[in-house]
Design a protein around this nucleic acid. Structure first.
Lengths: 128, 128, 128, 128
DNA sequence: GTGGTCTAGACCACC
DNA sequence: GTGGTCTAGACCACA
């Protein structure tokens, strides 16, 4: 199984993220066919309905689109859409809480920055 | 209503956070009585059961304790407990995803740092 | 059973329309609770999942919203939203084809108009 | 590509409509040969099987007929057949929903009529 | 083969 | 009680 599902978030969201990440990383590009529902369901050992739900979710965000009988494909601007969607989410939802935590928990932002440099080194080349 | 409940997280957790923050900010100190369940329920326009659940949750984390018939009070070391709990949560759960986002969404950490300086200025003294 | 499901369109869309119509007709107003998923499922003799899907669809269009553990409620501006959504659909998707048919099938628009006057008479007061 | 396939209806039906319209507009008349399956498939960038299905559908409605090895031809009474078929469809399926929408969305039928006059002017001679 | 829909039934967290 | 998610399995139309 390619994903370790964390318990806190729903599986279909995690799958959508998994697909989004592949698109963001350039593994799939515009108009390229992505894994079929059944294929991915088998690969991730989940029910096809669950994958279907993820794909519906991504389709709704105009990240992918469907051609009847053929499968799902990366939408034109799919990468941009997912990126702007996630950026909005990040700046509007994650960041305020993040700042709040830094302040309340008295964490030095320089420590965060140092941690990030390490993180970057660890993930060089490892994200295919 | 003092809290805008975000839809993604459960209400009782949001209420617990609300209380925790007040303690972290020093608004309530050790052995000081906090709002009664009923009071808070009215203030936040939620079911008393929900507030009760929040208090149970905080009690379990040894942030508050109860004196029968008198109400809930800030535990000795309450502030430390909540702080260490939140720090653990922050470093283990929030930070990895945060780093991942920075990388994937091509956000410069210096931008984050600059934003934080602003945030600190805005919240000097204003967070009651 | 309150709806005669037509075979051509998916059930969950028909249910969404059923709810939309009730809101458009003023049967439910802003912040009023609508039927619970299970209730409606029993009433319409369909699977709760199907009703759930309809509600998700409407929620996405900001016609209804959910309060955890309490149920679904008509959204502020829910009526406006559904109305503008349907009007857009009508003018952009239905009307062009309608005009095309009138022309190709050599149907007189006055005949359409006359039929509408009759239709209005028949439905006076009958739509509760 | 000559047709923008709308996602809601199946492609083979859309192709059948495309052919029907040409016949209704008098572009092809009785016993005239229509595009071959292969030609049309290339023109519309679809699978020949799909065009085949459209032709079968039209053949079933006695709008076209086939001569082995020669191709498909407009049937005698082909125009009349498609016209009566579409009229029935129009009055039985489209019109009731149309009326319902006018009422529910508070659209003035006079507005519809005015729009049609414009539509007629725009399409004088321009529909090839 | 593909996606799309629906059912039945289950379990969960939440209020 | 409420919605939210997931599984298993089925059937359909479509390419």
């Amino acid at each position: 199984m390619a994903i370790e599902f964390s318990s806190s978030e729903s599986i279909y969201i995690q799958i959508a993220d998994y697909i989004s990440d592949k698109i963001l990383l350039g593994e799939w590009t515009t108009d390229e066919k992505i894994s079929s529902v059944r294929e991915l369901a088998i690969e991730l050992e989940v029910n096809p309905n669950t994958v279907n739900r993820s794909y519906e979710f991504l389709q709704h965000q105009e990240v992918i689109y469907t051609k009847r009988g053929l499968g799902f494909f990366v939408a034109p601007k799919g990468k941009e859409n997912i990126k702007s969607y996630k950026r909005r989410q990040f700046f509007e939802k994650d960041l305020p809480g993040f700042y709040r935590n830094l302040l309340l928990l008295e964490i030095d932002i320089l420590e965060i920055e140092a941690g990030f440099q390490q993180y970057k080194l660890l993930n060089k080349g490892s994200n295919k």
